[in-house]
Nucleic acid binder design. Structure first.
Lengths: 197, 197
DNA sequence: CCTACCGATCGGTAGG
DNA sequence: CCTACCGATCGGTAGG
């Protein structure tokens, strides 16, 4: 088994574009023929990289996950566990959505809504990614409370649910209503739920 | 111009089924051929009711809106404007999502996420429906404050944003993670934001 | 990686 | 409302 650096680079170019298309038109609306034309490849040439549409969808989810980790999670891990890290996770997420890192807003908001009522491997991969993100936010909230940075009566699971809700609502409102003030509302809501810095 | 009661009844049967399919597979995944087969009609027979796929999508949105009004809004208008009506709107919405009035959860959560990055008449119709719902919730929150049922320092627009966020998050989590406790979290979050009854 | 092709399905039409 | 059909596009394959 040898690596194929040139192919891997082409694969990443394809998948980065695929993630943008999927964030706008859905993972099902992502067609192999259109993706190939966009990138100046033949359809069967592009098809050869993945072997099936489902594998293309799964690979696109993996690429989107890597981008999400780079944009949102990793920069927040520079802060110590607890409240400061929690604040960074929230701020980075809102920035990631607002800057349209994916052309159609948060990739996972689109894909989750598309597949949440369809069983299969794609849905399973999205469920896992969402669970990892929720778990990170929940654990970080627990750490903040354990360090005495949140009131002792705080329910960390409940707080994490509410914080995630604000993020999702801002992304959805900003896309559907072209309403950039939704991000301000989400920041206001999150800050009100956390001690003043 | 005479009415066509028999046709209208058939139309409503078609559109009720279309709304269920769209809530699961999307308004684009709603295909005329599949819908016709499901209902035991010929494809062109069904096509004749609407004239184009886009008109079918728009008619499906109108039917889903009527169902939403019947399930969520009208029963809440029985209560006087203000806090009690606001509570009913929230409770009815969570019940509407939890009971799976549409097979794939909230019709609008699915459709909005699908079309929020695609311009056109379908998106415009969804934007209008969402704006009407947000406006109703916001105005009801204003009324509650004006009646002294909410603290004077409450920002009604901000509060309405947060309450809608809890509803959407419960619907999304319950679908993606088969997690019925999300509805409990949303109720807890909403009640904590409102005065104890 | 390509051209050329497959059967299935898409939205939509002709004609009755 | 039907049968029969249209061109376009879908995912996928054969063969090189």
């Amino acid at each position: 088994m040898v690596g194929r650096p040139q192919n891997d680079q082409a694969r990443q170019t394809i998948l980065r574009r695929a993630a943008d298309i999927a964030s706008q038109d859905g993972l099902e609306g992502l067609s192999i023929g259109r993706l190939a034309t966009d990138l100046g490849l033949s359809k069967s040439g592009l098809f050869g990289y993945f072997g099936s549409k489902e594998e293309l969808q799964l690979a696109t989810i993996r690429t989107a996950t890597a981008i999400f980790l780079d944009e949102v999670v990793k920069p927040a891990l520079a802060a110590p566990p607890g409240l400061s890290r929690l604040r960074l996770l929230l701020d980075n997420w809102l920035s990631y959505s607002e800057r349209r890192v994916f052309a159609g807003g948060c990739f996972f908001a689109s894909a989750n809504a598309e597949f949440d009522a369809r069983p299969g491997r794609v849905r399973d991969a999205l469920t896992t990614a969402a669970r990892d993100w929720n778990r990170l936010l929940t654990e970080t909230t627990h750490e903040a409370r354990a360090r005495g940075e949140l009131p002792a009566e705080t329910d960390p699971d409940q707080l994490a649910f509410e914080l995630v809700a604000f993020l999702q609502a801002a992304n959805a409102a900003s896309l559907l209503h072209d309403d950039p003030t939704a991000y301000h509302r989400a920041r206001t809501a999150a800050h009100a739920r956390l001690p003043t810095p």
